[in-house]
Design a protein around this nucleic acid. Structure first.
Length: 320
DNA sequence: TAGGCCATCTGGTCCT
DNA sequence: AGGACCAGATGGCCTA
């Protein structure tokens, strides 16, 4: 069984300190008589004798450990690079305000799920359901971010649609209870600082030919991962491949997810969304999670334009 | 100060 | 034997 650990914290720490100490050299080579739980002599330990930890062995062990640490580090860096690549093709991408790892994975899952639904059932990417799918299971700040990106990109008509469906006002033009109002001079087109679009994101809007990698990691190339060069391929069996029920795992529900403060660390303080309820993320008839946010703010460089479902779909399916 | 997130170290396990 | 992968532990950073 891979990854199973029988060691307790104490024993591990103990073994660590032991390994690092000079006492290792004094490790007994002779086999002691072990006493069993009932006082009887326990059978002598079988297997190869524990080799004496000489200075040389200790040094070799240390060198091996250092090498292993370096490998592990670069492995994790590769993993993080891959995660970053994933972030870049997510509905919302911000260089300064990165989604956490877990939120990135959740959003990715939802994104695939939502796009699959679009392809299978022809559901509109601007529909309420699409937003719901995207936000399902995400923390409130993240779902707000995603929904906010969507809102920024969508027309007032969509906002109205959401209003109608949710029975709550859209985020864009409603005065917040807290006195913070996010208003857009021209709907769909953000005013500065939202105008700080990155070139890669502009591509989403004009003839997008697939996800853009700003700076492909050498690790990804070397790791044998082929660069993305085609349209997203929906799963053949959507219902079968995805847990459409979107059940929250016991672990997840136990977590009682709390928004990470950092998620809005760099947001504009003047752009808050109104509070609706603090009931948590509940997608459904009772309302869209977007509007249950206690607060919503956008990061300065949020790539709201990268989330343009219709652009994405049409560009990846139609223009290729 | 508590809690969330992250990077790193570490030892165990599996695989080549 | 050595590398990859995994998960636990730990400490740092940040924010409410």
């Amino acid at each position: 069984m891979r990854g199973h650990h029988g060691l307790t914290v104490g024993s591990r720490i103990h073994s660590c300190t032991e390994m690092g100490s000079e006492d290792m050299e004094e490790e007994e080579e002779d086999e002691e008589e072990e006493i069993g739980p009932n006082g009887e002599n326990a059978p002598k330990r079988r297997g190869p004798k524990k080799k004496k930890m000489t200075k040389a062995r200790q040094e070799r062990f240390r060198a091996r450990r250092v090498k292993a640490n370096a490998r592990e580090r670069s492995r994790m860096h590769g993993l993080n690079d891959a995660l970053d690549s994933l972030r870049r093709v997510m509905p919302c991408y911000s260089k300064t305000q990165k989604l956490s790892k877990i939120e990135t994975l959740r959003l990715a899952r939802n994104y695939i799920w939502a796009l699959s639904e679009v392809l299978e059932s022809g559901q509109s990417t601007e529909s309420h359901g699409f937003v719901e799918m995207l936000c399902k299971g995400l923390s409130q700040p993240t779902s707000n971010l995603v929904a906010g990106c969507l809102q920024l990109e969508q027309s007032p008509m969509i906002l109205n649609k959401l209003e109608d469906k949710c029975g709550v006002p859209g985020v864009g033009g409603v005065g917040g209870q807290a006195g913070h109002t996010l208003s857009y001079p021209s709907p769909g087109l953000p005013s500065p600082p939202y105008g700080s679009l990155e070139a890669s994101h502009l591509l989403h809007m004009k003839g997008f030919k697939g996800p853009v990698y700003d700076n492909p990691s050498p690790n990804e190339c070397s790791s044998g991962t082929p660069p993305y060069d085609g349209p997203l391929t929906p799963p053949l069996s959507i219902s079968g491949n995805f847990a459409l029920k979107q059940e929250t795992s016991p672990h997840e529900s136990e977590r009682n997810y709390t928004p990470h403060p950092g998620h809005h660390a760099h947001y504009l303080s003047s752009h808050h969304y109104p509070t609706s309820t603090s009931a948590g993320l509940q997608v459904g008839p009772q309302g869209h999670p977007l509007f249950q946010a206690s607060r919503y703010e956008l990061p300065l460089d949020v790539a709201f334009d990268s989330f343009t479902p219709s652009h994405l779909i049409t560009s990846q399916m139609g223009t290729i």
